[in-house]
Simulated scan of single mutants.
Amino acid sequence: MNTQRKTILGLILFVAFLIIAYIAYHTLLGNYTPNNIVESTTGSTSESSAKKAPDFTIFDVQGNQIHLSDFIGKPVVLNFWASWCPPCKSEMPHFNKAYATYKNDVVFIMVDLTDGQRETQKIGQAYVDAQGYTFPVYFDNKQSASDVYKIRSIPATYLIDVNGNIIKNYEGGIDAKTLTAGIDAIIPAK
């Protein structure tokens, strides 16, 4: 075979490879279901097996200190996010809808990880305002919360029961169904 035919054959094989890779990627992406649930307990919420949610200090939009321990006695959805994070942005509408549904039964603590450079309180608040989100936003200006929870990637969500125990946590973006199931797990039976 001459060099010109080898080159053409190589190009055809390369294009075929790209097409197959593209089809495989989109097929797998369409079948993807988040498998990012990390159970922090053995399924029981008893005091002996549940992990206490560590306390921390964050700030509201006015600069007032807020502590997780302020909400003992109420179920809490704790979410760490930033406005530059694509997975955070994709799950935010789910949190906003859940807040509208559960705001009378569950405390939502949406913690913007402000580092003062890439993410500032002004940038985070502007993003929330521009999107029309109504959930309360808090700012981790001193990295207290992210240090205590050892946040290394975002988004990260923790579901905390009325006794202050972490029932479930999720690493990475979650969908509406997963969020709703998690919230249902922390709301006390009436």
Rank of each mutant, 00 (worst) to 15 (best):
T3V: 03
D140A: 03
V137F: 01
T157E: 02
S44L: 13
V162L: 12
C85D: 00
Q117G: 15
P54M: 06
Y149P: 06
A21V: 15
I151Q: 06
V111C: 06
I174K: 12
K51I: 03
K89F: 10
A189S: 03
G124E: 04
L68P: 08
L28N: 15
L78T: 09
V15Y: 03
Q121Y: 14
F95I: 09
T33D: 11
G30C: 05
G10Q: 08
N2E: 06
L159D: 13
L11H: 01
A100N: 09
N165G: 02
G63Q: 05
S46A: 09
N141S: 13
K177A: 15
I187Y: 01
S49V: 14
T120I: 07
N169A: 09
C88V: 04
T3R: 10
K150W: 14
T101N: 03
Y133D: 01
A50L: 08
A181F: 12
Y99H: 08
Y158M: 10
V106C: 02
T134Q: 14
A16V: 03
I72A: 00
L113T: 07
V106I: 06
D60H: 09
D115P: 05
D175M: 01
L159N: 03
Q131T: 02
D105P: 01
N165W: 06
W84M: 05
L29F: 13
A181M: 13
Q125W: 04
L78P: 00
T7Y: 14
N163P: 11
P34A: 15
D184W: 02
S48D: 07
P75Y: 01
G43A: 14
G172K: 06
N96F: 07
Q121T: 15
T27S: 14
V107G: 13
I174E: 09
S153W: 00
I19F: 14
L179M: 11
R5F: 07
D147R: 12
Q125I: 08
P54E: 07
Y22M: 09
K6V: 14
G164Q: 14
N2Y: 15
N64G: 02
A21H: 12
S153I: 07
E119F: 13
F59M: 13
D147E: 12
L68G: 04
Y22F: 05
G124S: 13
A21N: 10
I160N: 13
S48V: 09
K89L: 11
A126N: 13
D175R: 09
D147F: 05
T27G: 11
T45F: 03
T120V: 07
A24R: 12
I167S: 04
D70P: 08
D112C: 11
E47D: 15
Y102F: 02
D112I: 09
I66V: 04
N79Q: 00
G63C: 04
M92G: 07
I166N: 01
T178F: 03
I19G: 12
K190A: 12
Y22K: 11
L29G: 00
T3Y: 15
F14I: 07
A185M: 01
P155E: 02
D112G: 05
F56M: 11
F95Y: 15
T3M: 04
F135C: 08
V77A: 00
I23G: 05
T7I: 14
D147G: 01
